[in-house]
Each structure stands twice: as structure tokens, then as C-alpha cells.
Design a binder for these strands. Structure first.
Length: 318
DNA sequence: AAGTTTTACAACCGCGGTCAT
DNA sequence: AATGACCGCGGTTGTAAAACT
């Protein structure tokens, strides 16, 4: 037999939190902490809420040092960078952006950033062959590419820590926003399935998850290599970039120049450029990948892969 | 000014992994 | 070992505010 039920579902309040409830929760946690048990917390704090709801409210809104309001350009870039390499791992992104929550980032991406980026996706003429012929024959559980080219943009360098938090994840996982223009070799070590970690240390925990039974992938980050201040970004989101309704996994790709925006020679995807372009199917994105990478002016010196552990084609492209 | 549509974001839901009983 | 709750995560929904017609 399991534990006792967490709460009386019929007797808990739902919906927006009142200022009084906020105060109660804040006061309680400031005095007693969460005690590592959200389920008993609401009762102790005198709240008619589910523990899960309290946790969410605290983490996303009441917790100290939460940043609200506009995202900076640097934050935009970090989000784009991470989305390009790891997809919708919002909690990992949040770990790289002090004061931002995964929910914040998720909302920001879905409502603003995606729209900002997607209309400029380049769709090249369908002349390139699909990359399936380059697919790795092996079903690998781990990738680690030496000297991977990484993408960078004018401001983001993937190396040093973004924050100086003592709980910073390993530097191999960190992004900085310094303005120096250098190239770095970089892999991201991210478990294919997030493990149970604390929110603040999720990235570190994820990055150090090699011993765990989860598959650990070293995600290459793509960069157009060329002149020193190239700011071309190859966006190729992971499978989790898709909504849950996409059972075959999402894969987003595009080329973005932070200085100029996306190239102007994009074309409509199945004639649906515009608002509906945001709803491009996975196949369209894959096509985009194929055509872009086979025929684009992006340097061929790219490493490219898709995670086939999750039943998406795995491609290595050098 | 009123009605309609769009946007932004807080909160909920459901899932997978973990853990307590 | 089996069962079922807990936890954290990502996706989705609800709704108030803003923008538009």
C-alpha cells in the first residue's frame, strides 16, 4: 500500500492566488522553509491549496529574486541558443538565466520569441537530398564529438558561467554573455530524460548524470564557421521542441543572423508563410533541415545529429 | 464607444521517474 | 515486490488586459 492521499481534491481551492494567500505562503516558507514536503505545507500554512499548487506559486512567483518583465537581448540570445541545441528544456534554460523561471521562459518563447524567430526561417529550394543517407547506422546511447564546431553569435560565448552562483553547473554547460568574440569547442551533456533534481541545480545534475541509467547525450551546438564576427545561428531544436501532439518528435531548424535577422530569400512553407508558418509540421522542418544544410551557404563544417533514441532520425554531418 | 480579436502570463494537467509504505 | 503518492517537468488552458476594427 502506498502513502496517504496528499490532499482532499474536492476541498482545495483552484485558480488565481489572492494576495492573502500569497502572504500566508511567503510568511510560512520564510519562517519554516518548505521542509522538503510540499504536500503537508498548505495545511501547516493555513492554505486551502494543493501542495503542488503552492510549489508552483512559490517557484514561479513568490520566491525571492524572481525577475519579472522584459527579457534582455542577451537573455533572448541565450534562450535561442539553448532552444537550438536542447529544445524545450525550460528548466535547464532557467538554470542559465538567474531570476527567470522555466514557466517564464516557456511563456516568453511561446508568445514572443518564437514568433520573432520563426517568420524568418529560411526555406531553401527543394534541391538538396535528405540527410538520411548520412544517418549513423548505430543506435548510440551517447555522443561525444571532439572539437565540435559550435555556433556563436556576436554576444554569446559558450564557455564561462553566466552567473557567478556558487551552485553553478559545470562550465561545460554554461553560457556567458561576454562580448568577446571567440570560438569555443563545446558539447552539452544533457540526459535524454530529465532526472529528478532540484530546480536550481537541475543543469548541474543533468550534466553530471552520466552514471545514471538515463541516456546521456552530448549535444553539439551548431555554428556557422567563418569570419571572426560571424553571427549566424543554425537553429535545430530537439525533439521536445514539439508539442505533445507530435508523436514523431519535433525538429526545428533555421538560420538566423542576429544582426540582420533571417535571410531574405526564404520562401513559404507549403504556401503557409505568415501566422500559420508557426504551425509547420515536423516533416516540413525536417525538409527545412535537409535543404538548408545540403545547399545552404552555411559552412559544411558542421556537426549535425538527431537523436534516434527518441525515434527521430540521427544524422551526423561533417 | 462598443464589440471582437489578440496577446501575455499565471495556473492547471498529465506524465515519467522516484520513493515510501 | 507491489502499490500508489510525491516530485519535477513540459504542454496546455483560462482569462484579464491590450490592441484592433
Amino acid at each position: 500500500m502506498g502513502r496517504a492521499p496528499c490532499c482532499d481534491k474536492a476541498n482545495v481551492k483552484k485558480g488565481p492566488w489572492s494576495p492573502e494567500e500569497d502572504e500566508k505562503l511567503k510568511d510560512y516558507i520564510q519562517i519554516y522553509g518548505t521542509g522538503g514536503n510540499w504536500i503537508t505545507l498548505p495545511q501547516k500554512a493555513g492554505l486551502r491549496r494543493c501542495g503542488k499548487s503552492c510549489r508552483l506559486r512559490w517557484l514561479n512567483y513568490l520566491r525571492p529574486n524572481i525577475k519579472h518583465g522584459e527579457f534582455s537581448d542577451d537573455e533572448d540570445k541565450v534562450i535561442c541558443t539553448l532552444f537550438a541545441s536542447i529544445g524545450s528544456r525550460w528548466s535547464i534554460m532557467a538554470a542559465q538565466l538567474p531570476g527567470r523561471t522555466d514557466n517564464d521562459i516557456k511563456n516568453y518563447w511561446n508568445t514572443k520569441l518564437k514568433k520573432k524567430m520563426m517568420p524568418s526561417l529560411i526555406s531553401m529550394p527543394e534541391t538538396g537530398k535528405p540527410l538520411h543517407h548520412l544517418q549513423s547506422p548505430n543506435s548510440l546511447t551517447s555522443y561525444s564529438y571532439p572539437s565540435l564546431p559550435v555556433f556563436h553569435n556576436g554576444n554569446i560565448n559558450i564557455s564561462g558561467p553566466l552567473s557567478s552562483s556558487p551552485a553553478s553547473p559545470p562550465s561545460s554547460y554554461m553560457y556567458s554573455t561576454s562580448n568577446t568574440s571567440k570560438y569555443y569547442d563545446q558539447t552539452l551533456s544533457i540526459p535524454s530524460s530529465p532526472t529528478t533534481t532540484t530546480t536550481t541545480a537541475s543543469a548541474a545534475a543533468a550534466a553530471s548524470d552520466h552514471h545514471h541509467h538515463h541516456h546521456t547525450h552530448h549535444y553539439p551546438v551548431l555554428q556557422s564557421q567563418g569570419e571572426k564576427d560571424s553571427s549566424t545561428l543554425v537553429i535545430c531544436g530537439g525533439d521536445q521542441a514539439s508539442s505533445s501532439t507530435n508523436s514523431d518528435g519535433g525538429f526545428h531548424v533555421g538560420v538566423y543572423d542576429y544582426n540582420k535577422g533571417f535571410g531574405k530569400n526564404y520562401e513559404k512553407i507549403k504556401g503557409s508563410y505568415g501566422d500559420s508558418s508557426l504551425d509547420c509540421s515536423l516533416e516540413e522542418f525536417k525538409q527545412l533541415i535537409s535543404t538548408n544544410l545540403c545547399s545552404s551557404n552555411i559552412d559544411n563544417n558542421l556537426n549535425f545529429f538527431v537523436d534516434d533514441i527518441k525515434e527521430v532520425e540521427k544524422v551526423m554531418y561533417y
